[in-house]
Structure formats: C-alpha cells, structure tokens
C-alpha cells in the first residue's frame, strides 16, 4: 500500500510523461528514462520479452536513444508533422517494488490524428505497465511496457512515442 503522497507523485509522473509524448517533445520525454530503461510493445498477448518471439518494439536504452535521435532529425517522414495526440489515463494501480521503486498499472486510450498521412483518427487502447524510481528527488521510469489490445494486428504505422 502506497501513501497518498506517493500516489500523487506517481500520477503526476504519468500525466507529465503522457503530455510530453502527446506533444512529441522527444528529448524531454527521453530525459525521464533511466539507463536501464526497457521500452516494449509485444506482438502477442502473454508474450515473454526473452522467449525469441518477435515484438512490435523492443528497445533497450541504446536503441531508445537511436529512436529519439531519428525523431529529432526532422526528416523522419512518418512523424513530419508529428501526429496530434491525446491520451487518457485511468485505473492506476501502484505497488511498491523496493524502497522508492514502484510498479504501476494503468489503462490508456490514445487518440491519434494522422495529420502527416491520410488525416484519419486512429485509436490505440492499451494496458500499460510502468516501473518507476525516485532518484535525487525526481521520479524516473526504467520500464514501460505497452500491451496494445490489437497487438496481434493488423497494426498501423506507430512511429510516435506510444
């Protein structure tokens, strides 16, 4: 059981992380990720990240840095201009992993207006699991797993920060 203060800090982090992703503020979003970050979108329900099955996205910190560098080039066509996005976060449940470390479950519905291509609205519902830790008085994430409801597909282009 976490305290009210811990809950507020975790929720504050989730909302900030969502806003930076929604607004495609790539480097500010990246600054929330720890060196041991694992950013993962499995391709199948119940998938284990180490079972040799392919993922839709499976970034360690190095590959995540490459992803952010690519988005920051300004010529990543799939995000020029960036998708206009709005994500709604709900059903936040928090467990303590260790002192100052939290496992956080939430439900997310992301609305994406695909302004750079066919100008359609795409909806991305997902169960999301974060692992967060307090470092030097600031909340950071060292894991974000996004379980898309439609992970087995078909899945449309997903070049923004999910």
């Amino acid at each position: 059981m976490v305290t009210i203060e811990e809950r507020l800090r975790v929720e504050e982090f989730l909302f900030k992380e969502a806003r930076l992703a929604d607004e495609s503020r790539y480097s500010e979003w990246e600054a929330l990720a720890e060196d041991d970050m694992h950013y993962w979108v499995p391709a199948e329900a119940g998938q284990d990240p180490d079972d040799g099955r392919i993922s839709i996205l499976n970034d360690n910190r190095t590959r995540l840095a490459t992803r952010i560098r690519q988005l920051n080039t300004g010529v990543r066509h799939a995000q020029v201009p960036p998708s206009r996005m709005c994500r709604i976060i709900s059903n936040v449940e928090i467990e303590t992993i260790a002192d100052g470390e939290y496992f956080v479950r939430s439900n997310v519905v992301l609305y994406e207006y695909r302004i750079q291509a066919d100008k359609e609205m795409e909806v991305w519902p997902a169960r999301v699991e974060h692992k967060l830790r307090m470092r030097d008085g600031e909340m950071k994430m060292f894991s974000k797993h996004i379980h898309l409801l439609n992970s087995e597909g078909p899945v449309r282009g997903l070049s923004f920060i999910i």
Partner: peptide, 14 residues
C-alpha cells in the same frame, strides 16, 4: 520492419 521500425514506418507513410 513493422509499424515502429526505423525503416518501414517511413516507407508506409510514403
């Protein structure tokens, strides 16, 4: 390859 890929995500939007 795939929806999030460094290459194919750009091919798909084009």
């Amino acid at each position: 390859l795939g929806p999030t890929a460094f290459l194919l995500a750009d091919d798909s939007v084009i």
